[in-house]
């Protein structure tokens, strides 16, 4: 009788342990499903026709997914109308937050306002909108200060004299003017540095090549080209190679894109300003997650410092960031 009772107790213990085991497994599964059920995050990027923005978009998407969200990238193709359509679809699609790289500092305000009115928080990345009332926060490259530093290095490499060409980015983008004004705040103090031409190539590599080719017809004797981004720097360098002037004319870019980092390493491009697209994209995704979890007190604008990358310090850097951060 006692033996039967003991077997009965052991059986109960085994069944109890099995039941707890199953419960724990169910809870773990529920936890996993819960993380996948956190909601959807939209990543709206100004253009995917530039590798720098592809890195920005992909990093934001990956980080959002790591945090348990379903994330989708929307390409605005540098068109505010397309961007507006994306916002309409995002609002209708029940997204929880938007990680947003705007197309136009003024033109994109209305889209962010639309999202705000639909109670969807927007986290701007890299590019700014000219409002501090509609986005939840804006994580921005400190382009002006980065170009002040680049301008100082430009003056040093040019020994304070010579002729140069400036290639501007998209004229409606604040980054274009922040970079240009930062650069000129230094360079214009040197009267022997003459800017012979200032034209837009819209941040585009092919356009930059075409613009510089025609500029070289009018001004064959230039000493340097300052480009508002790295894609244009690569286009400018191609034009100089085609004209047989690549060894004589110094090219300066801005971004920290892979081909320019490689070119600085190879001595083809002189310097660039390293922005940190991966860092900014991760910050935006993490802040969206914090917002969804309840945090509401975000600084409206967060400048992220740009660092000067030259042939002297290239060892510290890799494409889109610092070696130590990869």
């Amino acid at each position: 009788m006692a033996r039967k009772f003991l077997l009965f107790i052991i059986l109960i213990l085994i069944l109890t342990l099995l039941a707890f085991g199953c419960k724990q497994k169910r809870q773990e599964q529920a936890g996993d499903e819960g993380s996948k059920d956190k909601g959807k995050i939209a990543v709206v990027i100004s253009t995917l026709n530039n590798p720098w923005f592809v890195v920005l978009g992909n990093t934001a998407k990956e980080r959002a997914e790591q945090l348990g969200y379903e994330a989708t990238i929307f390409d605005s193709q540098n068109d505010t109308a397309k961007e507006s359509d994306h916002f309409d679809n995002i609002i209708a699609g029940g997204y929880t937050a938007i990680l947003f790289n705007p197309t136009d500092a003024d033109g994109s305000i209305a889209n962010v306002r639309k999202a705000k009115e639909a109670d969807i928080p927007t986290f701007c990345i890299d590019r700014e909108i000219n409002s501090n009332e509609v986005a939840t926060t804006q994580i921005l490259s400190d382009n002006y200060t980065g170009c002040v530093e680049l301008g100082q290095y430009f003056v040093k490499r040019m020994n304070g004299k010579g002729k140069y060409v400036e290639l501007l980015g998209i004229l409606g983008d604040n980054n274009t003017w922040n970079r240009s004004k930062g650069f000129h705040s230094v360079v214009d103090n040197y009267p022997e540095l003459k800017m012979v031409s200032q034209q837009t190539a819209e941040f585009d590599r092919t356009k930059a090549m075409e613009v510089l080719e025609s500029t070289l017809q009018a001004y064959p004797e230039i000493d340097a080209v300052f480009c508002g981004n790295d894609a244009m720097a690569m286009g400018a360098y191609q034009a100089l190679v085609a004209a047989g002037k690549a060894d004589k004319v110094m090219v300066f870019g801005f971004d920290g894109a892979k081909d320019v980092i490689d070119s600085i390493h190879d001595g083809k491009i002189v310097a660039t300003g390293m922005q940190f697209p991966k860092k900014m994209a991760r910050m935006a995704a993490e802040q969206a997650d914090e917002y969804i979890k309840g945090r509401k007190d975000f600084p409206q604008k967060v400048p992220v410092a740009v660092e000067l990358v030259t042939q002297e310090n290239i060892a510290k850097y890799t494409a889109y960031g610092r070696q130590s951060e990869q």
Partner: peptide, 15 residues
Amino acid sequence: VSEFSDTMKFNEISG
């Protein structure tokens, strides 16, 4: 910087 609608103003102040 958050006081300003665009960061160019913030930069112009420095100048």
